[in-house]
Amino acid sequence: MSAKKSPEELKGIFEKYAAKEGDPNQLSKEELKLLLQTEFPSLLKGPSTLDELFEELDKNGDGEVSFEEFQVLVKKISQ
């Protein structure tokens, strides 16, 4: 996936994966893993990378990643 996506496209991608289980407005760690493996495969170099990335993105510590938290990752990789 190209990092150059419109905000609407990014929101659609986020919602597609977030709706798989639990809260449709939040990504669980498994949903984030699936999204990254599919859309940004070069970001995941191993299991520790996912854990570190999830911890970094989950700013409020609720165990899930909101769209706002996800946007931090998108901004970081599009620079």
Rank of each mutant, 00 (worst) to 15 (best):
L50P: 07
N60A: 15
K20I: 05
S2C: 05
E30D: 15
L34D: 15
D58W: 09
G12M: 11
F14E: 00
A18G: 06
Q79S: 14
K45Y: 07
K20W: 02
E30N: 14
S6T: 09
E9A: 04
I77C: 04
S2V: 15
P7C: 10
L43M: 12
L73M: 07
L57A: 15
L44P: 15
N60R: 12
D62I: 05
Q26R: 14
F40P: 00
L10E: 02
L43D: 04
S66I: 05
G12K: 13
S48Y: 12
Y17S: 01
L27N: 00
P24L: 04
L43F: 10
F67M: 03
K76D: 04
E15Y: 15
L32S: 04
T49M: 05
V72D: 06
P41N: 07
F54N: 14
S66F: 04
L34Q: 10
K29G: 06
A3T: 07
V74N: 11
E9W: 01
M1K: 02
P47L: 09
L36P: 00
S78Y: 00
E15F: 12
L34M: 13
E39R: 01
F54I: 14
K16P: 01
E39D: 03
L53D: 14
I77F: 14
I77W: 03
E31C: 03
K4H: 11
F40Q: 02
Q37P: 02
E15R: 07
E30R: 13
S78E: 15
Q79E: 15
F14C: 00
L50D: 06
V65I: 12
Q79F: 01
A3W: 02
L27Q: 00
V74F: 14
F70A: 03
A18L: 02
K5I: 14
G46A: 14
T49Q: 14
Y17A: 04
E64V: 06
N25G: 10
K16H: 05
A18V: 04
E64L: 07
E30A: 10
E69K: 10
S6P: 01
K76F: 02
E30F: 11
S2F: 15
K20N: 10
E8K: 11
F67Q: 14
Y17G: 01
Y17H: 06
K4I: 15
D51G: 08
K20F: 03
E69D: 12
D23R: 08
L43P: 09
E52T: 14
I13Q: 02
S78L: 02
F40D: 05
P47T: 15
E15C: 03
E64A: 12
S66Q: 05
L50G: 06
F40G: 03
E69F: 02
N60W: 05
L35P: 00
K4A: 01
S2T: 15
V74H: 08
Q26S: 14
L27R: 00
E39N: 04
Q71H: 09
G12I: 15
D51W: 03
E30G: 07
G63P: 08
N60H: 07
L32N: 00
S2R: 04
E55M: 11
F70R: 00
E39I: 02
Y17I: 01
S48N: 09
Q26H: 06
G61K: 07
E69S: 06
K33Q: 14
G22V: 01
K11Y: 04
P47A: 15
K29F: 12
A18T: 03
Q79Y: 03
S66Y: 05
M1W: 00
A18E: 00
Y17R: 01
K5C: 02
F14L: 00
K5W: 00
E21C: 12
F67I: 03
L35D: 00
K20T: 10
K5G: 10
F54S: 13
I77H: 03
E56I: 02
K11D: 01
V65N: 02
K11W: 01
D23G: 05
S2L: 10
K4Q: 07
K4S: 11
S78P: 15
E55R: 11
L35V: 13
V72G: 13
Q37D: 14
S28G: 04
T38F: 11
S28C: 06
Q26F: 08
V74I: 15
K75E: 13
L53S: 10
E8I: 09
E9S: 06
V74S: 11
N25Y: 06
E30S: 14
E68M: 08
F70M: 04
V74A: 12
K75N: 03
N60M: 03
E30M: 13
T49C: 04
E21D: 15
E21T: 05
K75V: 06
E69H: 11
K75I: 03
Q79A: 12
E69R: 07
T38S: 08
L32R: 00
L32T: 07
S42C: 06
E31V: 09
E64P: 12
S2K: 15
D62C: 03
S28V: 03
K5Q: 02
L43W: 09
E8Y: 05
P41F: 10
L35N: 00
D62N: 07
V72M: 09
Q26P: 01
S66W: 01
L27V: 10
S42K: 14
F70W: 04
S6K: 02
A18D: 00
D51T: 08
V72W: 04
G12E: 03
I13P: 01
L57R: 10
L57Y: 13
D58H: 05
P24C: 13
P47E: 15
E21A: 11
E68P: 12
E52M: 09
V74W: 14
L36F: 11
K33D: 13
E8G: 07
L10Y: 08
S2Q: 11
S66K: 06
N60F: 03
N60D: 14
E64D: 14
F70P: 00
E39Q: 02
S42Y: 08
Q37S: 03
K33S: 08
G63W: 03
D62W: 03
D23Q: 08
Q71G: 12
K45S: 13
K76C: 01
E15D: 08
K33L: 13
P7Y: 14
Q79W: 05
K33W: 01
N25F: 13
Y17V: 01
L43G: 08
K16Y: 05
I13G: 00
M1E: 00
A3G: 05
G22P: 02
Y17W: 10
E55V: 10
K75Y: 03
S48W: 08
D58E: 04
E64M: 13
K75L: 08
E55P: 12
K16M: 03
L73T: 06
N60K: 04
D23L: 09
L10H: 03
G22C: 01
S28M: 02
E15I: 15
E39H: 07
L73P: 00
Q79G: 15
A3F: 15
L53Q: 13
L34H: 14
A3L: 12
M1Y: 01
G22W: 00
F67D: 01
K4W: 01
G61H: 03
S66H: 03
L43K: 11
